[in-house]
Design a binder for these strands. Sequence first.
DNA 1: CTGAAAGCGCTTACAG
DNA 2: CTGAAAGCGCTTACAG
Lengths: 332, 332
Amino acid sequence: MAVTLAEVAAACRVSISTVSRALSDPDKVNPQTRARIERIAQQLGYAPSRAARSLVSGRTDAIGLLVPDIANPFFPPIMKSVLSRARDKGYAVLLADSDEHAADESELARDLGRQADGLVIASPRTGETELAELAAQFPVVFVNREVAKAENVVIDETEGIREAVEHLVALGHRQICYLAGPRRSWSNQQRRTALARACTELGIELTELGPFEPQIQAGLRAADLAHSGGATAVIAYDDLIALGMMARLTERGMQAGREISVIGIDDSPMSAVAHPMLTSIHVPAAELGSAAVDLLLARLRSGESSAPARTVRLETRLVIRGSTGPAPVDRR
Amino acid sequence: MAVTLAEVAAACRVSISTVSRALSDPDKVNPQTRARIERIAQQLGYAPSRAARSLVSGRTDAIGLLVPDIANPFFPPIMKSVLSRARDKGYAVLLADSDEHAADESELARDLGRQADGLVIASPRTGETELAELAAQFPVVFVNREVAKAENVVIDETEGIREAVEHLVALGHRQICYLAGPRRSWSNQQRRTALARACTELGIELTELGPFEPQIQAGLRAADLAHSGGATAVIAYDDLIALGMMARLTERGMQAGREISVIGIDDSPMSAVAHPMLTSIHVPAAELGSAAVDLLLARLRSGESSAPARTVRLETRLVIRGSTGPAPVDRR
DNA sequence: CTGAAAGCGCTTACAG
DNA sequence: CTGAAAGCGCTTACAG
């Protein structure tokens, strides 16, 4: 079917080796014959067999990307930057989605790992031990989770969360409710810890509801719970929960920023759709993806063991919009 | 590094051929030795080299998926169903995103095609001729676009659009404005044609604005244009434009379903976030993806030429929510 | 600068 | 039922 090196060689009346060199290591070949070979290869529509090349090189020139849920708007921006960075560097991307099933992550990752040179695993829910095993087996970079001795790209929400709490305090809120994400989520732990510290330092009372799945549906449920609980301000685990909460408030004739203030985390593009627009903690999604690819490729280049595992930490900041406002007087 | 057939063979004291057969064609091998081989292969953690297998079989067991923009919520549900169906059938998925650049599609598709057994291309913007060339070069299934002589899975919006127009007529609207999508978009053509016919048949006046990019931002712009144009109802090319329009209306103190009715197309999950919730034409995204994979694998199995190209057509229907309401009396 | 040859890890007729 | 051998399409020392 496809044109092979042998056919090009025959057409050029040179050996296979020469064609191979002319195409992949041009300096080692006479400029004139090289030019001729290149021309003829072009005419014949020669494209090297990936499988053959891979068999001898031991590389696949592909990386695997594992995500818990493509439909969660948090991930597409990360994925897009992974794709574009990978492509720039000559790598294809194999995709898998665990559909939020922690139990499937390991198997999916292993399958990907077998077909790729390395893996980028976003927001894994799997236990630390299992992830460490994965990282021992394949070159892996974790995104949005810090696994000991592995390479990670994480979000440092300390600053963004502190800004959020200060913002609420300035608006007169004295009690904040955290709408927790999945119990086993690493970033949920990070966020609640950062929040607890900020509240303590600023002398604010902190309560918690949840856990909630990172889905709009869960946010609807959260809204009624939070409101009946008497909170004047909530910070949600993510934008989806926050947006769901706002939708439910509106449905009940209330409005975020008036009866109750709502802050999300992620600052996904959807924030602009809600009314009022969602105040959210901005997470640099694009950098998350490109940093992950850079880290992974650096590791592949350095040949496994050499460099010590690194964790890249990206900053967050608060983006203020309409869903936060003064604490209502009667509830303050 | 990885365990090879030869190592397993040595450990079992049989030939490579026997190990190969025991593992991939068990019937051809003595049950007892087979059991022993399987056990030892397992112990050694043997996993066949994809590259080697691919080199002899000529297959990659991967399919390529090309999408114009992962961040557009229309695509993730389709992608998820492609991923899950492909996995069920033992195929990996290579992903590429053209970032809405029609000019890059062909090259991306060609690159994917070289590394996969076949391609699923969603909503391509490229010209018909070029797509036909692609389809001649690789096994391809187009999603959301009908390319002559190729395999396609498309949406038949006739029914959904007719329901939408009937719905608006019942609410007293007599003039509908279509917020057009990208000029070269195939589904934009489909939608405006279906809309024109429905309006003619129901004696409704149809105007058009645009083209607009399928993004929230474009919807904001569309809102002011549509409102100043005097329309009492709009049908947008997709949910993103519709949602952007609603956000802008709210910003200006108006509300969809009151001053102006808004209908989207796609019925993406985001529809539930807006207030009021968006009336939209439901598109069966999951079926779109699985049908595409089924069609592609059928083609791969049948070995190219045999079966004639098929087009699978999926039905749409209107989902009524709060963004449509009676035509305002003063403008009617 | 160029060619012959070995080898990457499998699968699969072909003998036995 | 099992083994020896050829071959899939490349790359890369090794000679010349």
